[in-house]
Design a protein around this nucleic acid. Structure first.
Lengths: 336, 336
DNA sequence: GAAAGTTGATGAATCGATTCAGGCAGGTTT
DNA sequence: AAACCTGCCTGAATCGATTCATCAACTTTC
């Protein structure tokens, strides 16, 4: 029932070696053989068995992508970029969403190791360097996505989160805001820390005194944003901040939603809001949301390109690619 | 360098057959052997080679998921549901996003066929029955997702789009709307047709005369929604509809955005808007968006469960699972 | 015209896990 | 005591594509 390379060889009247050569190095085979083999493949509906190929040749045609938060459109765009590049090379993407859960992260790393993927892209949650080290020893290259590799042991493709945080808060300060609440968490996610650090830098460098307080969230979903917003509103009025910097757009949308529903604080009159990522929904929000844009597709494309290069050349040394973020101003941060 | 089952056998002082048995049927092996083998695996850091396993045993540990529109949070939720179920069975998901492109659809079907995935979930764009038929002949089960299988040749998991369309328009009519524009396309996507059909049914059954017109879009993104909105606004005022039924929430958000920016038509006072899918961003929109909710995670979970069952039992017959949609009323369709 | 080189094809060995016919030890049945 | 189980283990054969040493046929070169 299943058609193997042997059947093709028989039909074409050549040896299996020749069929394999037609498939993999057609230029080293006579035109005649290429023809006959191609026709046989067509006739029999032969499809290459990737498992056998992978076993013998040791080359995989899949790349794993472990994502921190699959519900975040930002990561979808990154995946889309990686996908575009992958299909160019005939490579498919094994997708895993960890939802900020260490158990799931480990599970996917195990799964992808068994699969012997060609390479791994990962937006990590926990500390994965030890694990990635081990994968590397097994010949699986890994590239960190949306996260700078602190110790430089792995390649990474990211956006400068510190600069992004600074841009956001500088913009708020220019708009006349003086009491800024940074909303985000958990703080074991590196990006969250970096964005906050950038915010603090901007506040310290400001010509006027600016207060940056932290409103911690358990995760970075719309719901967490709504909850954080409710907590802020519940304060006595004179303790209200005049600007919110959300660690990502999902949080920002949630914050916006709870403020709009409540109605006592007007955006941007009483309070400005800025997010991070510039997801497509930011522009469609109740009050169009200012944000710090990351070149998401480019991040995915670049990461995939790098991981393939590293897979091809095990000697290659790790390199950090850092894109610059971009401030996108919309209604939610108009000066009062 | 790489550790094989042979190395484990050597270290544990047993045969390779026994190691394999420990891995796959530990209850048929003495406790002592299980112990020694487990320890050897631990010591050597052995990881099973999935390619060899797949080649010999013919069982795959991946399932392919071909998605119509990766930027749509609805499909992300479906994938998330499938993922949850998949990890329970130690299965990873090969992910492909076609973006309503026939070439990409074919590409992924080819790729997944070579991979000999255990099964395939697909939200199809073109007519894929012939292709799926062929996959089935090769022992790869396929389940249609978010799409009823017209001829019943394949299992499917979907929501009744006709009922959903009817619910949406009945709701609009109850709110006093009489001139409804259905915004969506392309019409070779089945769901679009069904939703429109449901809308027409509701209009015909109404006690009052109701007009349903069609505003066709090239795709169903936020941008297409914005463009369609602009076209509607450009009409002479007396030709404006008093309600919009968008074929999905992305379109609805785009429509809303262009109307809000323009400012001449107030939502919901002059014009009501309802979408489809109830993505998480619908609630956070400029005017919180009414929508027809689909149980997205449940769809993904169910589809994966079914495809695994079919993969296990090639005799199993196709079954159609149809969930009922649910009307979610928010501000965008308040009666005037 | 012999030696050397080129081109293209061959087919056995190989990757690593699984499978299964067969074997062995010790216990049970008749 | 012979026949028969039972439980557990062994190791060679196998899956299908790739690789590579080897060979045949043909060209060049001196």
């Amino acid at each position: 029932m299943p058609v193997s390379i042997r059947d093709v060889a028989l039909r074409a009247g050549v040896s299996v070696g020749t069929v394999s050569n037609v498939l993999n190095r057609p230029d080293e085979v006579s035109a005649d053989s290429v023809d006959r083999v191609s026709r046989a493949i067509e006739d029999l509906g032969y499809v290459r068995n990737d498992a056998a190929r992978k076993l013998r040749a040791g080359v995989s045609t899949t790349v794993g992508f472990v994502v921190l938060d699959g519900q975040n459109p930002f990561y979808n765009d990154v995946v889309r970029g990686a996908e575009d590049e992958a299909t160019k090379h005939g490579i498919a993407i094994l997708y895993g969403n960890t939802d900020e859960d260490l158990g799931r992260e480990k599970l996917y790393l195990d799964l992808f190791e068994e699969q012997q993927v060609r390479g791994l892209l990962i937006a990590p949650y926990g500390d994965v360097t030890a694990r990635l080290q081990r994968l590397r020893a097994r010949g699986i290259a890994a590239v960190l996505v949306d996260r700078f590799s602190g110790d430089g042991r792995f390649s990474s493709v990211s956006v400068d989160s510190v600069v992004g945080g600074r841009m956001a808060v500088e913009h708020l300060i220019e708009g006349g805001r003086r009491h800024i609440a940074f909303v985000g968490g958990p703080f074991d996610i590196r990006q969250v820390n970096d964005r906050l650090a950038g915010a603090r830098v901007a506040a310290e460098n400001a010509a006027v005194p600016v207060e940056v307080e932290v409103v911690a969230t358990a995760a970075m979903t719309v719901e967490d944003g709504v909850a954080a917003g409710a907590r802020i509103i519940a304060r006595p009025r004179r303790e209200w901040p005049d600007a919110l910097f959300a660690a990502n757009d999902l949080l920002a949308l949630g914050l916006l939603q709870s403020l709009v529903v409540d109605g006592r604080m007007l955006v941007p009159h009483d309070i400005a809001i800025i997010g991070f990522d510039d997801i497509p929904f930011a522009a469609a929000a109740a009050v169009p949301l200012s944000s710090i844009r990351q070149p998401s597709r480019m991040i995915g494309r670049t990461a995939l390109r790098i991981v393939l290069e590293e897979a091809a050349d095990s000697e290659s040394i790790a390199r950090q690619t850092v894109f610059q973020p971009e401030l996108v101003v919309r209604a939610s941060t108009l000066p009062r």
